[in-house]
């Protein structure tokens, strides 16, 4: 399997990369780690005329404190997140999720920014990004703009990032240890059939629940969050709330799982993720 022919460009700066995107328009694709884009190019589901490799752009791979948030460069690999002592201490949901992505080789190359912009409905990061209510910073020729995770995903393989823009940073809040990510994975690829990320905020008596793999786009299980607001998170409350994790959602139906099975799995994994997160609180 060989991709269709394309021109390859490797700009040295973000400004240069954005200028190239403006020049080549929708025929161009940004290449980060290449672990979402190269596979779809090999299948010829994507046939960009120009590939703009941003791996030589400086300062897109980092994890650092920024005010009361943690800033993660878009080119940071899954492995670098998995191995980050700062994230393990300040935002453990990300270090719990990272080693569940794909496999070791994929985690060495794949990047958080690349995965988010690709917006595969079965990718893992979206669940955590939604549950953490992250901010995503997008660079374009008119400067930078920040969007909330809940506004970022538009539909299947589609985000608010425009064809001449580049996602450059993800900012997450620091959390307590009462978080969890539980997924049912497709056996060969490791992609999520139903992945649920939970953040329990004991002080404010709120939970946030991000779901991936289940619908055409990842979502916040707002019904679950709403019934648990202010509640004591005992077994009955969790059971009852998890039962509505697929409310208002149209589950995907494909060779990996039927819609009914996905609706079932998201309830089970919501319950499990809530139980694990509470047990860590």
């Amino acid at each position: 399997m060989i991709p269709a022919a394309f021109d390859y460009l490797r700009p040295a700066t973000l400004d240069e990369a954005i200028a190239l995107l403006e020049l080549h328009g929708a025929d161009a694709k940004v290449l980060a780690g290449g672990h979402s884009l190269v596979p779809v190019m090999k299948l010829r589901l994507a046939q960009p005329k120009t590939v703009i490799d941003i791996s030589s752009v400086a300062d897109l791979s980092y994890v650092r404190e920024q005010g009361d948030k943690i800033a993660i460069g878009a080119m940071t690999t899954h492995y670098d997140i998995e191995a980050s002592p700062l994230l393990r201490d300040t935002c453990p949901l990300l270090t719990e999720l990272a080693p569940q992505i794909g496999d070791a080789q994929v985690r060495n190359r794949g990047t958080i920014g690349g995965s988010l912009v690709h917006a595969d409905p079965a990718a893992d990061w979206p669940a955590a990004i939604l549950a953490l209510d992250a901010d995503l910073e997008i660079a374009g020729s008119n400067g930078r703009r920040a969007v909330k995770a809940t506004e970022f995903f538009v539909g299947m393989m589609e985000t608010v990032v425009q064809s001449s823009e580049i996602l450059c940073e993800i900012r997450v809040p620091t959390t307590a240890r009462s978080v969890a990510y539980v997924k049912f994975a497709q056996r060969a690829s490791g992609f999520a059939i139903a992945g649920v990320a939970v953040v329990v905020d004991g002080a404010n008596k709120t939970v946030s629940v991000g779901v991936t793999g289940v619908a055409a786009r990842p979502y916040r299980a707002l019904a679950v969050e709403s019934v648990l607001r202010g509640k004591v998170l005992n077994r009955d409350a969790i059971d009852q709330a998890a039962g509505i994790a697929a409310e208002g959602v149209e589950p995907l139906d494909d060779i990996h799982a039927s819609a009914a099975f996905r609706a079932h799995l998201v309830q089970v994994n919501t319950r499990r993720a809530l139980e694990v997160a509470v047990s860590r609180g």
Binding site: G34, H35, D53, A104, N108, R109
Partner: peptide, 27 residues
């Protein structure tokens, strides 16, 4: 497999294990 799953093509790239079927030589 040529689909980033089987790992038969694993090599070390800058010391890190990668699937060489999912990397362009130009990268």
């Amino acid at each position: 497999c040529e689909t980033s799953i089987c790992g038969a093509c694993t090599v070390l790239f800058e010391g890190k294990a990668v699937k060489s079927c999912t990397l362009l030589a130009v990268q």
